[in-house]
């Protein structure tokens, strides 16, 4: 993006107070808030405010970010109590402020606003999020046919950017870290509902800590910035799993 020094210099003196959760292992026993005054620029996202702090006020502040266009999934944080992508949340949304920025809830904090997401990656692997086929792989001369309708059947669940806002919004996950969680189940469904997939993920989904752990609070869906609707994915699999328990020959 355009650098900001010049713009800030020209801007009015309006500022907004940003309260940032700081946690430095070895120094802090638990997170503490540190306050910064940040120029209130009309076009600035919360992430721009954080970068201003890091570049101009305090180089020791740590947070993750990358694409700044809402697709890499790095910059999820808790902004005034809600899980948000900070690149797509504008400072001006918070009027006079202050804005309180904390790490995503539900995850161990590594440093400042950086959380440990290895648990999610292990869960993602566990649902076998890849196309499962039987038999010989055909030669690379033709694609598997898939109509636009068949694509539409799973497309929505393939839009997950793994930002983990849904885990942070989910009270079940926050209370029980063993819960498989919204994104992992949505991605399992992304493959279950793909007409090209021949796999079966019943063994990992039909579990107390998997779909049956969900109490359908629905907050994952409200938090999702990409309209994946993981709550729907989970409830649909509950129905699938229930039908399979009653009718053993029914699949998916």
């Amino acid at each position: 993006m355009t650098d900001t020094t010049e713009a800030v210099r020209r801007a009015s003196t309006r500022t907004i107070r940003v309260e940032v959760s700081r946690y430095r292992p070895g120094e802090d026993a638990e997170p503490v808030f540190q306050e910064y005054e940040v120029p209130l620029m009309a076009d600035w996202a919360v992430l721009d405010g954080l970068n201003y702090i890091k570049d101009r006020l305090d180089g020791s502040l740590s947070f993750r970010w990358s694409c700044r266009m809402g697709v890499c999934g790095s910059c999820g944080m808790n902004v005034n109590g809600e899980p948000r992508l900070t690149c797509g949340t504008f400072l001006s949304e918070y009027g006079e402020g202050p804005v309180r920025i904390e790490p995503l809830k539900g995850f161990p904090v590594i440093r400042d606003l950086v959380v440990d997401i290895d648990d999610f990656l292990a869960k993602l692997s566990s649902v076998r999020p890849w196309l499962i086929r039987e038999g010989e792989e055909p030669p690379l001369t033709a694609e598997y046919a898939q109509t636009p309708e068949q694509l539409e059947a799973y497309k929505q669940y393939s839009m997950c950017i793994n930002c983990l806002l849904c885990y942070s919004a989910c009270p079940v996950y926050v209370l029980d870290p063993d819960f498989l969680g919204p994104a992992a189940i949505a991605l399992a469904q992304r493959y279950n509902l793909d007409s090209r997939d021949m796999g079966d993920r019943f063994d990992v989904l039909n579990l107390e800590d998997s779909v049956w752990g969900c109490t359908f609070v629905g907050e994952c869906t409200s938090a999702c910035p990409k309209h994946v609707d993981p709550a729907e994915a989970i409830q649909r699999y509950k129905l699938t799993a229930a039908l399979r328990s009653v009718l053993p020959w029914s699949r998916r």
């Binding site: 430095r24 292992p25 070895g26 890091k54 020791s60 740590s62 440093r111």
Partner: peptide, 10 residues
């Protein structure tokens, strides 16, 4: 500014 070992992005 940052002299810590944990997640030192600076």
């Amino acid at each position: 500014d940052d002299s810590s070992t944990a997640f030192n992005t600076e």
